[in-house]
Simulated assay, not measured.
Amino acid sequence: MSSHGFELPLRLLLAFRMLIDELHAELARQGHPDIRPMHGFVMQAIGPDGTTAVELGRTLGVSKQAAGKTIDTLERIGYVERTTDARDTRRKIVRLTPYGMDALNRSARIFDTLRAHWAGELGEDRLNALEADLRTMTPGNPWRLDTPGWFGNL
C-alpha cells in the first residue's frame, strides 16, 4: 500500500492522541478527573524540586503570564502549591503537591500498561523495532517540554 507523505505525521499524532486520551480516561477512573493533557507537560517541567513561573514559562516555551495562568489552575485543583524559596524569600517556587506526585506516578504506571497493550497487539519485537526506529529519527532527549509553546500557548 502506498502512503502519502502527510500521513506519517498524522498517524504519529493520532497514536499520541490515542495514548493520551486512554491515559486520561484511566487517570479519571483512578481519582484524577480534572487533569488535562497539557497539565502533564507542566507538571513534568515543574519536576520534583519545583521551579519559578519564569523558569516554567521558559521551559515550556510560553510567557510567564501563560505559565502563571496554568499554575493558578493546577493550584486550584490541588496539583501544585506556591511556596517561598528557603534560600531567597523574595523568590516564589511552585512545587508539586502529594496529589500532583500521585498523578505523575499513576501516569507512569498507566503508560506501562498502555505500552503492554500495544506489545500485545503488535508483538513485542515489532513494538521494540518501532521504538528503535523512532529513536533513530528523533533527537536523543525525548523530554521536549516546550510542546505547549510550539502548539501556540497553554
Rank of each mutant, 00 (worst) to 15 (best):
F6L: 13
H32T: 02
R126W: 08
I46Y: 03
S63L: 08
A119R: 09
I71M: 03
N141R: 08
L145K: 09
L74A: 00
P142T: 00
G152K: 11
K69E: 09
T138E: 06
L145V: 12
L14E: 15
T70L: 10
R58W: 10
T136S: 01
A45F: 04
I46N: 04
A15K: 00
E55H: 02
A28S: 10
T73K: 06
K92M: 09
M137E: 12
D146T: 00
S107F: 03
W150F: 07
L104C: 02
L12N: 12
L27F: 12
T51P: 07
G40V: 03
R144Q: 12
S63K: 08
P148K: 00
R17F: 14
A108K: 11
A129K: 11
A119K: 08
L13G: 11
T59N: 01
T147Y: 10
I110P: 05
T84F: 09
H117W: 05
L145Y: 07
D133C: 00
R90I: 01
Y99D: 14
N128S: 06
G152C: 09
G40M: 11
D102I: 00
D85F: 11
E131K: 06
K69V: 10
P33S: 01
T147C: 05
T147W: 13
G68Y: 08
F41C: 07
K64L: 01
T136K: 11
L114K: 04
A103H: 01
P9L: 08
H39K: 07
T59I: 02
G152T: 13
G61A: 07
L8Q: 12
I35Y: 01
G123H: 10
L104H: 05
S2V: 06
L130Q: 11
H4C: 01
L8E: 13
L122V: 02
L104D: 02
R135V: 07
P9Y: 08
